[in-house]
Design a protein around this nucleic acid. Structure first.
Lengths: 257, 257
DNA sequence: TCAATGCATTTGTCGGAGTAAATGCGCCGA
DNA sequence: TCGGCGCATTTACTCCGACAAATGCATTGA
């Protein structure tokens, strides 16, 4: 009955403080909404009933609704109630919303969209980074790549290092909106490694592609950096598309759906 | 001392319902934070004192903080209090955060960043749109452009039509994350027209550029659409950059700063 | 038939009380 | 003298009950 029985990764800040109730409720409701359990246009039960059913106070529930409202998932008005907004108004670039999508198996269209976005953003960001990178950007990138080599993508540490590298490239672009896309890109990167891990094999060694991007950025060659990043993302795109098709052949996979 | 005396556009949903207190507080605090009135790392006064000073209940204040927290602007923990997070963690792509930036005169680096983003995103989106557009996308685009012609960019209606056109292009790309960037792109578009209006002259007729984009998308030519959109955004970029340099020559401009 | 108005429902706001957590400090022991 | 441990304090977190405001709906009147 509780929509969150399946998701083990409750909201938990990196500082290790425990999840608060309003965060937990927002997480659970958010997952329920993006997974279609509550359809756009649908009206949620009123505050009193719903908070009672969820076994939380009205205050905590209201704060959870405020969070969802801030991310564009719901809209509440007196008398009308709190209703789920149209999916086009959801703030898909929000790190939490994206995480809620990935809490359950997300729509393949979203995966495709993320890769298309990566294919648009990352080469351009790499080109900018080649022009503007500071020494400390290169230091971060080099360290991330060395960690990738040391741990490999089969480990959590290696995947974190992978995302750290892509984040560093966006950082080095010295463009505030681009940097804000880091979490979105990171979700795409994470998804790549998820599929790679699922296959229990790495279809290719990702390191040469990564080092070529790094070298081009370090050398200050925008077009070389762009081209290298296109190759990198393109390879990841092909790997993921292949894995995605493979997983689609065995339908179902989620008993609750 | 109220930080919002200057901003007339209080949060007011398109449906015309009045601003709620928590929304107003979130708006005011958000503007104060992104404008640097509260520095990152700084701790806000505790709930009781601050809510009393703001003349609102603790519930309403807490809901406002919850909104800001959902957008990554603050982080609150027991004993530590509520503190402003590092600017790199702010969710810049959030429509509200972006609006709060533009409530006061935003950092020119942000304007530049937005135009760079447009220059990256919009041509690629136009190319995708040329491949995937449905008839109703073209209908929306055509109507937007006709409204642009009828009202011109000197009017509010014309500017809305301008943003509607750019939104429609993103829509036609049939890519969920790209569509979510509509508000971000829209902020950039709006800023262009703001500067154009400020100069009380339109440096060039924007319509031919727009129609060329439309024609290319309607004809299904991805590269033509990309190229046309590059020209369009490039022209806007040059106009805005010129106006920005001009306005920087007369420093100050805002008595409260 | 239409318009104005009262009513019921739902969210919004308020004030207070008690709980849990995290930090800093003092105490205690080695 | 130094290090570890427990306690007190501060703060956000949670809960509760009540009232206000807004809005859709039905009712009533012209």
């Amino acid at each position: 009955m509780a929509p969150s029985d399946r998701t083990e990764d409750k909201p938990r800040r990196r500082t290790g403080n425990p999840a608060r109730i309003h965060g937990t409720i927002a997480h659970d409701l958010g997952v329920a909404i993006v997974s279609g359990q509550y359809q756009p246009g649908e009206t949620l039960p009123n505050e009193i009933d719903f908070s009672e059913r969820l076994k939380v106070s009205r205050s905590a529930y209201r704060e959870a609704v405020r969070i969802l409202s801030a991310k564009g998932l719901v809209e509440s008005r007196p008398k009308t109630g709190t209703r789920v907004t149209q999916a086009t108004r959801w703030n898909l670039l929000d790190p939490d919303v994206l995480a809620w999508y990935f809490a359950s198996e997300p729509d393949p269209k979203l995966i495709d969209g993320l890769f298309e976005l990566r294919m648009i953003i990352e080469p351009a960001a790499a080109a900018l980074a080649a022009e503007r990178r500071e020494p400390h950007h290169l230091t971060v990138m080099r360290e991330a790549l060395m960690n990738m080599e040391k741990h490999t993508l089969t480990t959590e540490a290696g995947q974190i290092a992978d995302r750290a590298f892509h984040d560093a490239v966006l950082d080095a672009s010295c463009n505030m909106p681009l940097r804000s896309l880091a979490s979105t890109i990171g979700a795409g990167v994470r998804w790549t490694t998820v599929y790679k891990a699922r296959k229990d094999e790495l279809p290719r060694d990702p390191m040469p592609d990564h080092w070529r991007v790094f070298d081009a950025i370090a050398a200050g060659g925008p077009e070389a950096a762009r081209s290298a990043m296109e190759d990198l993302v393109g390879a990841a795109l092909r790997d993921t598309a292949r894995a995605l098709r493979r997983s689609q052949k065995r339908p179902g996979g989620d008993d609750s759906g």
